[in-house]
Design a protein around this nucleic acid. Structure first.
Lengths: 147, 147
DNA sequence: TTGCTCCTCACGTCACGTGAGGTGGC
DNA sequence: TTGCTCCTCACGTCACGTGAGGTGGC
């Protein structure tokens, strides 16, 4: 029931390389299960999801690995909260971490919105240029047949 | 009427550093006007627009400087076409470059659409997480006053 | 047993960051 | 004349790329 995958399989799923995954592990961004300390790395669904998240923060938002490390630490704190939550912590501590986690996600969401705005504007520019091409094309119909 | 700007001013406008602008010039991505070969660099509106374009390709689409170089070379060819166009070239050559330019822009547009899709999905994930926070918040109203 | 993928160094590369030491414009 | 920004090396850094040489699983 374990369904563990090799580093090569995971690299292909994520569209990256084995070198990159080992580098992430070296920086402490992810961990992999290993039979012995020199044995082959194995990845479960949890780790793959974590890696996917790291990749999104890196490629979509352009964060560096240090910033990503901070975010992942926050996510880890939130997971720890869930455990504390069900174990029954004080209401004050509970709200403390809720506020922190909420703030982090709001910050991310703002960055995403910002990027979306810039990307949409860029798409608009490209569409305008493409439209100008099409009108240039209409103006030279004979040339179109020459290709 | 020149309105030339210094490297520091341009760097601040683009939200980057003077080092980066000099590096781009070293790679041949942009040029700057200089009184002598060792004198201070000056940038006109054309060069600033070009730099802005380079930055968009780099930060929004994540292209490397080699790929960006290829794109800028294409843009240059299109500018050259405009000159040829008004000078009156053959219809065959005209359509040749129109096809090429159109293809380049379409490729870029596809990449932008792809990124927009991924970013929108990422925004959706974040919104779902934020919604879960809000319901957790409702469940602990007393704690909210404690902060 | 033969490939194929995996492993650990370790040097190379890309896109800059960051002083070191010096010259030029308001 | 005094700052401030500019200049050119040139070494450092981050996030990997890329072999070198060797071990382990189907």
């Amino acid at each position: 029931m374990a369904e563990l995958k090799s580093i090569g399989e995971v690299a292909e799923i994520l569209g990256t390389t084995t070198r990159t995954l080992r580098y992430y592990e070296q920086l402490g961004l992810v961990s992999s299960s290993r039979v012995s300390v020199t044995a082959q790395r194995r990845y479960g669904e949890t780790e793959i999801a974590r890696l996917r998240q790291i990749r999104e923060l890196q490629t979509l938002l352009g964060l560096d690995l240090d910033e990503i490390g901070t975010h992942m630490a926050s996510y880890d704190r939130l997971e720890a909260l869930k455990a504390e939550y069900t174990a029954g912590v004080s209401a004050a501590r509970r709200s403390e971490i809720l506020v922190e986690g909420f703030g982090i996600l709001e910050g991310l969401r703002a960055q995403v919105s910002d990027r979306l705005g810039h990307l949409t504007a860029f798409a608009g520019e490209l569409d305008a240029r493409l439209a100008r091409y099409r009108s240039a094309w209409e103006a030279a119909p004979v040339a179109a047949e020459a290709t």
